[in-house]
Design a protein around this nucleic acid. Sequence first.
DNA 1: TATGAATGAGCATTCATTCAT
DNA 2: AATGAATGAATGCTCATTCAT
Lengths: 194, 194, 194, 194
Amino acid sequence: MKKILDAARRVFCRKGFLAVTMQDIIDECGISRGGIYIYFASVDEIFLEVMKQRSKEKFSEVNKAVQNFQPFGQVISDYFARQKERLLNFENSLFRAYCEYIFSKPKPAVQAFRDIQFSQLQKTVESILLLGVLQGVVANDGKEKLQRLANHFIVTIDGLSILALAEALTEELIDGQFAILNEMIQKKENENAN
Amino acid sequence: MKKILDAARRVFCRKGFLAVTMQDIIDECGISRGGIYIYFASVDEIFLEVMKQRSKEKFSEVNKAVQNFQPFGQVISDYFARQKERLLNFENSLFRAYCEYIFSKPKPAVQAFRDIQFSQLQKTVESILLLGVLQGVVANDGKEKLQRLANHFIVTIDGLSILALAEALTEELIDGQFAILNEMIQKKENENAN
Amino acid sequence: MKKILDAARRVFCRKGFLAVTMQDIIDECGISRGGIYIYFASVDEIFLEVMKQRSKEKFSEVNKAVQNFQPFGQVISDYFARQKERLLNFENSLFRAYCEYIFSKPKPAVQAFRDIQFSQLQKTVESILLLGVLQGVVANDGKEKLQRLANHFIVTIDGLSILALAEALTEELIDGQFAILNEMIQKKENENAN
Amino acid sequence: MKKILDAARRVFCRKGFLAVTMQDIIDECGISRGGIYIYFASVDEIFLEVMKQRSKEKFSEVNKAVQNFQPFGQVISDYFARQKERLLNFENSLFRAYCEYIFSKPKPAVQAFRDIQFSQLQKTVESILLLGVLQGVVANDGKEKLQRLANHFIVTIDGLSILALAEALTEELIDGQFAILNEMIQKKENENAN
DNA sequence: TATGAATGAGCATTCATTCAT
DNA sequence: AATGAATGAATGCTCATTCAT
């Protein structure tokens, strides 16, 4: 079953979600036509399981760093570095599949799924920024502004992800955008100092 | 043929790109199966033509405003208002279809298409910001920084578009993100004043 | 389309209803896999159409004889002869398919269909018996009794049909049963005479 | 193994014969896939065993009544009552499965099976009628006529069974048909008296 | 004995594409 | 130009049967 999920993940990275057929996954994992239906009734089910698995891995490192109260400068630059690497190696990303899934399903059906993905991400980014606030290197403009800023990070990275999928993304562009995000924190830092 | 393209556009708005079959377009425009193949050999061709049409309309108004050297404050707030309306009425948008198309095609094949879309957008946003610079209300930090800022606008709006498609987008969230973009200009204005 | 229905009828006679696949009908009529779906969406639809066609043919001759007020003795013996021939050549009958269809469907779904079949049959048999009454060769015991007798004819023939399908039916057995039905009319005739 | 047969019987009552899969029986009896194949190689084998079991139960009571030389009036009215109850509770009957089995198999293969079922039934009905003859309440028209009458009872009940499966059977209709069968005996009784 | 994972043949259905009219 | 009937490849899915444990 792990064999199926690993194979499926490779397929989803390669072909997104909508174009993936059971046949693709069967071919990739070497299990028979019927064999796969023992575990999963549809491509949808496999996809959801793959996403569940990924969620577990995804934030573990950064969350650990935050919990260990490591220096904000370190954490944020690690975070950017990791995102940059991800954006530059987008052939290993499930983002395309995630988008196609979210786009194609009737909205009520995916609400729970999408909310989990989004709120987990929000929580993680917020916790990083909060770490900066606690360490006095990010301005404390109140919870609302912090949330807004966290959302802006997410939105920016989502926007970059689209460009990555369109292969319209250069390293230079990434650096430029992350520089802007950094400045937004730095600015606040200065203001804080005032 | 206009009938085909109009019908196809409605279909692409409704179902994206990947899920659209010739049958869908046939049903929508009321022309026969064979009749459509006289003009277009595939859904792909129809899609490209629809996108070409849309490009023509898309930037006409804002470009005109810029060319007429209208007040930057007016132009930018119009731009945000228009984007906001678009994001809140995303069932009429071709963004999903655009994403699915870009995602699904082998990259070299869509490079030209994607570059046209992206550079048109860049040019328009840059021209707006340049208007601000010329009118002395946006900081003149050099061409590179301006381009970076323009990209940030684009990236942010793309990020919001994803959320719109996932129906994870509230009016509040849009306002918050546009406020951040506005502050980035204002900030620069202040600095400029210093 | 006539080609499809004729082929389908042969298949239903040979294999009943439940065991018939689209493939069977496709093989029999020589139309392509997709071609058949232009006219019919499922085996069910084809079956219903075949049955509709048959209903039209089925009672035409005997109904005509009744309407022409032909001698009862002639009509009834023709009817028995025809039924006997049908029972002895049951490989050309749709009875098996009809049974399997009726058996396998959720009852509300087939109610209308089954009622039409049954009431047509009832009406025809009743009209024959009524002919006998009008000609004074069948006892007039009231409408209710006549209906009951008509039902008995139907029930008997259905019972014989089951035996035919089981190939447990000899010519002798048929003759014996039809003799009983004949006696029932004769008896009444005698009584009538009393 | 009894567990298997009991479960299978419930399934056959519910779904007939053709639509029953091994999975259905597995689900119903809670024994594993492989476990069932130890005892039975196919659904066919299970069905035959279920039918064999049922034959043992089926006629025991009426046969006992006949052997005990109980009053014919009692025996026949018990028999009709039992049949009526069976017809009105046809969801517990194996008749549908029996029909589908008989219909679907190549005739030589089921000849023995079908003959056993039919001749057992014939024998039982004949023995009841013979009881009537012996008690002087049914006309003694010779063995051949008696057999013919027995067959008519069977044929009628088979015909009613079809209607039961089609849910076209009312209590009124059953009563009417059984009344006809009763009259056939009564008539003979009267004649006998003459 | 008993299990249940695995196999692969077979079915319904959809769809892009062709072509005679 | 325009039609729409016809094709056949491809997909999801089910099921009887096998077999290592």
